[in-house]
Amino acid sequence: MAVSAVLRSFVSGLRSGLRTPTVIQLGRCHGTEVCLVAAPVQPETSHKRKFHSTVRRKDLMEFFDIKKNWGQKEVRSGRSWTKDELRIKSNSDLHKLWFVLYKEKNMLLTMQEECDLVAELFPNPERLDKVEESMVNLQDVIKERDTAVKLLEIGITGDAPTKECYSGLGRRYMHKYEEHLMPYWRNPRHYAKRYVVDKPRGFTREFLLRLWEKNRRQKRKALGFQKHLLHEARKEYPGHPIWAEKDVKDLTYEEVYHSKMSD
């Protein structure tokens, strides 16, 4: 009971974090390592200092790097945000950080575009990768929280449901369901075309048989090559004890490759 109560309070905290209107104090970061998120707004009675180190400069000039880096050949930057670091942050903090990263990405793209236009080298292009990596990490962390809430409250992950289907060529694939305004029984032609394809027969059956034959041949070819390698190995090392243990037909190339020569 105690555990469930704790979980419930945790969930309610998550939900309140999702629902409270967040005041976005958009910060500016030069290089990813200085991405200090704007501190959450404290109530006026709090004695904590309202401090954040980022500069608020809301303007069109935010699309460019700081003036110090213009025309430079090298721009130093730190590493990207890891998942463990992001998991500690609150939802509102993550929301702010998203916009900081977002602006950084726009800035880098703009600088890259201009560099291409003037035929100059874009300094340290790995900065873009770092920003994108931290954005992906942030999205993953938010997804984790979402699924946790949904599993506790409803018992499902909330992802789109899937179904095994046959494509027009008779190949099997997993179909992902989408939301439609019109129900499927109102649109039978589309439904018949899209989702209900029978098991392969006729031409598709013929096509599949040929495809499978091709795959089988490829596999057999690979096996034959392995056999060839085995015979080569036997010629090279006739004194190896593995030849006495087993017949060559029962051996695989990997077995021989990883076996040890005894002295």
Binding site: L60, F64, Y102, L117
Partner: peptide, 12 residues
């Protein structure tokens, strides 16, 4: 939209 993912480049 809470986490927009559009890009915009300012060009000459």
């Amino acid at each position: 939209i809470f986490l927009p993912d559009f890009y915009m480049k300012l060009v000459r």
